[in-house]
Design a protein around this nucleic acid. Structure first.
Lengths: 110, 110
DNA sequence: AAAATTACTACGACAGATGAAGTACGTCAG
DNA sequence: CTGACGTACTTCATCTGTCGTAGTAATTTT
């Protein structure tokens, strides 16, 4: 399992990636993360919703409702232009991070 | 430059990697990190020394003094068996983390 | 003699992750 | 029709790691 400190700083990126594919809502995002990571990473509910709030606050996503006459009302999210821009930056940062961290990893231990 | 949230959780690993090569002390470690990362990552002094304390507390490193009759007394650190074990685990975790995060990165954006 | 560099230590603030708990709606088995 | 389970959140309080600020102390450079 992956420790949270590692993924910290990439939860937002992970969420944006999924919103880039499709607008979505909390529960679904959470399931997709689990699935796409092959159960290697499961985001905690509270972490997910606090990430949504942070992303909203920064203008990287927008929330809206669909008119559903059944079930508990879902909050849907979609990515904004600013969000796309931020996501792109994060993709580049990730590439750099990999390069840097790799220098401190002994390949013979992996 | 790399944001601290990204490297968070890997500072300890980075330090252990360097101590695996040679016993060392704060200032030297700090310079080595800067050098090995090609200036892409510079650890903050406070972050470094708080990492040392955490690693000591967990028994992953040991501190000692060398008898130097000059200069300000340095605290040297060396890695322990437990530290080596922890480092190996982190190397494996890093491999997994890369695999997982990569699934949420659009290659065409890097 | 002053400024820069080396080598730390202490303290307080902050942000992101998380545990615990609660709310609210729907479905389905017994 | 009732209680368990799954969906879909929200609030609150706590913890950890990072980092800014500041201070101490010795040596080296200008």
């Amino acid at each position: 399992m992956i420790s949270s400190d590692v993924i910290r700083g990439y939860n937002d990126t992970i969420i944006l990636y999924l919103l880039l594919e499709n607008e979505s809502y909390g529960y679904e995002i959470s399931k997709q993360i689990k699935e796409l990571s092959h159960e290697k990473y499961t985001i905690k509910e509270t972490t997910l919703y606090s990430a949504f709030n942070r992303l909203l606050k920064n203008g990287y996503i927008e929330s809206f409702y669909k008119d559903e006459t059944f079930g508990k009302r879902r909050t849907y999210y979609k990515i904004t232009e600013a969000g796309l821009h931020y996501y792109k930056e994060k993709c580049q940062e990730w590439k750099l991070t990999k390069e840097v961290v790799n220098r401190f990893i002994r390949e013979d231990f992996t």
